[in-house]
Structure formats: structure tokens, C-alpha cells
């Protein structure tokens, strides 16, 4: 019992350090007149402290909200400044992205071109490849683990797959850039296909691998939430396991699975390091998985890393891209969360 207690002390000291310091003064001031009984005084003190503690707790809870507000405000604020320089329509519908501002103001295209469509297309291409890998593999793995694998096997396989989820993205990026991409390029050379050394395929494949445990653990939760009685009902009629899974369990779990896939997609869209290290910088508008494409996240990094003055269209563009990214992922996340919550309530 000592360990939890020690941990609690640490927590209380940290969480309430400020609180104790401030309330101590109030308590002392309240204590001095000393006409009331000790018991009354303790109670009064306790109430004061507790009311104050609640305020501290509320203040802490508001940090999460402030973060969201801060994200939205900073993105919107900088984006508005960007759109004062570059028209919104040029940004949203432009087909050319080349933010290299000219050295001299009299050069052509001094402001650069900021059409985000190629970046968006690149992001979607890589996300699509990633999901084509992660969705079937993750889902099948989840099905196997929840329906077929024995308890012992599951206890081994699950933590192993979770290792994949714990590997930092920069490691995946390194793997994609130094192992997978050259591998594909060599295959392409042998078969006479031109595969860029920064192909969307390599980035997408590795991102897919990264997302597999994400899809599988979310789907496994969803699948195991399907009541056992439905399985028994189906087996009781002589259905095989795969028939039960395909015709009863998956349809029943569908909303939850869709939610899981949406969350995974949102993650793939927002993934940065794999794209930065394995996808290219050239903003090609292409659907060819063998070509190099660039993504929204790569461009944000490229625009903001290195020395640059902060008010140029170039740096502000990163915030506009960030706003788009935030908005897309927000929509996906909220839909997914609502769908999954509804689903959970349905079977709880």
C-alpha cells in the first residue's frame, strides 16, 4: 500500500502546490481571531480549502480548452494575414505550388505560387496507399485476435503489435527513406519501371505499417464489444466462424469500425516525419504512386524550418496549410468520435 500512497503524495504536492501556498495565508488569517471552537474552525478551514481546490481543478481543466482555442486563434490569425497577401481562392484552388519567393522584388512571380491542390493531392495519395495496407491488414488482424486466437496467443501477439504503435515516426521515416524506398527503386529498375527514390509508394507503405496497430487495436475493441449472444445465436444455427464474422459480427460492428478507420485516416493525413523523410519536396499533381509527391505537412515543415523572416507570405502560408490540416482532421475526428460513442452506447 505504500507505493500508491507515495505516488499520491507526489501528485497532491504537484497538483496542489500552488493551492496550498495561497490558501495557507487565508487559513492563517481566518485562524487568528480564535473565538470559535477547534472543530468549527477545522470545518471552516476545510471548506475554504476545498472551495479553493475546486477552482484550481477547474483552472487545470480549462487548459485543454485553451489549447484548442489557442490552436484555432493562432492558425486563423496568421492565415488571415496570409490571405491578405494571397487571395483565398488562389490558395484553395491553385494548381501550382512554388513558394520560393524571388530574391529581388522585380523578378517574375515575386510572391511565389501558393496553390494547395498538389499538396492536398499528394497527401491524399499517400493516405490512400497507407489505408489500403492498414485497413485490411489491421482489420483482419483484429478479427483473428478477437475471434480465432487463443488467449495465450493473444497475450503474446497483442503487445508485439503494440510495439509497432510505440515506434517513433522518425524511425519509420528513416526506414522508409533508407530501406523501403531504395528497395522499390531497385525493383523498378529490374522491371523497367521508373520508381522515384522518394516515391509516394514507399512513404504510403511505411505509413500503412505504422497505422496497422492503430486500426487493429481500435477495431478489436469494437469487435469484442459485439455481444457474445449474437455469436452464440449464429453458431447455434450451424454457421461457421467466418460466416458468423462476415454476416453477423462485422455488420454489427460496422459503425465502430468506420469510426476506427476515420481516426486512422486522420492520423495518416496529419503524419509528418515519414512524409518529410520519405516523400519529396516537389509538388507534383499526380496519381502515380511511383512518382514523388509532397504533402501538406512536408510543406509546413519546409516553410518553417531554417531562417526566414516571420512575416513573409512563405511562413504565413505554413499557418494557412496548418489551418486546412486542422480543419480536415477535426471533421474526421469528430465524426469518428460521435459514431464510435453512439456505437458504444448501443451495446453498453
Amino acid at each position: 500500500m505504500t507505493s500508491p500512497f507515495v505516488l499520491t503524495v507526489v501528485a497532491v504536492v504537484l497538483a496542489g502546490g500552488l493551492l496550498l501556498q495561497k490558501s495557507a495565508r487565508r487559513i492563517l488569517v481566518g485562524w487568528l481571531p480564535g473565538s470559535r471552537t477547534f472543530r468549527q474552525e477545522t470545518n471552516r478551514r476545510r471548506k475554504l480549502t476545498e472551495r479553493f481546490a475546486i477552482y484550481v481543478l477547474i483552472a487545470c481543466s480549462s487548459v485543454a480548452i485553451l489549447t484548442t482555442v489557442g490552436i484555432i486563434l493562432s492558425l486563423v490569425f496568421e492565415s488571415v494575414r496570409f490571405f491578405a497577401l494571397i487571395p483565398v481562392t488562389d490558395f484553395l484552388f491553385g494548381l501550382k505550388w512554388s513558394p520560393q519567393t524571388a530574391l529581388r522584388t522585380d523578378q517574375v512571380a515575386a510572391t511565389g505560387l501558393f496553390g494547395m491542390i498538389p499538396l492536398f493531392a499528394g497527401t491524399l495519395l499517400i493516405t490512400l496507399i497507407a489505408m489500403l495496407i492498414a485497413a485490411p491488414i489491421g482489420l483482419l488482424a483484429a478479427i483473428y485476435m478477437s475471434e480465432y486466437a487463443s488467449r495465450a496467443a493473444r497475450d503474446i501477439i497483442k503487445p508485439c503489435l503494440e510495439i509497432l504503435a510505440g515506434i517513433p515516426t522518425v524511425v519509420y521515416g528513416f526506414f522508409a527513406a533508407l530501406t523501403v524506398a531504395p528497395f522499390f527503386r531497385n525493383i523498378g529498375d529490374v522491371n523497367g519501371i521508373v520508381i522515384s527514390s522518394e516515391s509516394a509508394l514507399a512513404a504510403g507503405l511505411v505509413m500503412g505499417i505504422m497505422i496497422i496497430p492503430f486500426v487493429s487495436s481500435l477495431s478489436e475493441d469494437v469487435i469484442s464489444a459485439v455481444p457474445q449472444s449474437l455469436r452464440e445465436g449464429s453458431y447455434g444455427m450451424g454457421a461457421t466462424q467466418s460466416e458468423t464474422i462476415k454476416q453477423v459480427i462485422l455488420p454489427a460492428a460496422l459503425p465502430g469500425i468506420i469510426g476506427a478507420l476515420l481516426l486512422a485516416t486522420s492520423r495518416a493525413i496529419g503524419e509528418t516525419m515519414i512524409d518529410v523523410m520519405a516523400a519529396g519536396l516537389s509538388a507534383n499533381l499526380t496519381a502515380n504512386p511511383f512518382a514523388a509527391v509532397t504533402t501538406v505537412t512536408v510543406q509546413i515543415v519546409t516553410l518553417l524550418v531554417g531562417d526566414q523572416e516571420f512575416d513573409s507570405a512563405k511562413t504565413l502560408a505554413a499557418f494557412a496549410l496548418g489551418l486546412v490540416l486542422f480543419f480536415i482532421t477535426l471533421v474526421l475526428n469528430v465524426i469518428a468520435l460521435v459514431v464510435v460513442n453512439k456505437y458504444r452506447e448501443h451495446y453498453d
Partner: peptide
């Protein structure tokens, strides 16, 4: 579930 890079922008 917000992309981590957005926190960087913040």
C-alpha cells in the same frame, strides 16, 4: 487526435 505538427504551429 490533432496532428502533432499543429501543436508545433501553436
Amino acid at each position: 487526435a490533432v496532428p502533432s505538427i499543429v501543436f508545433g504551429l501553436l
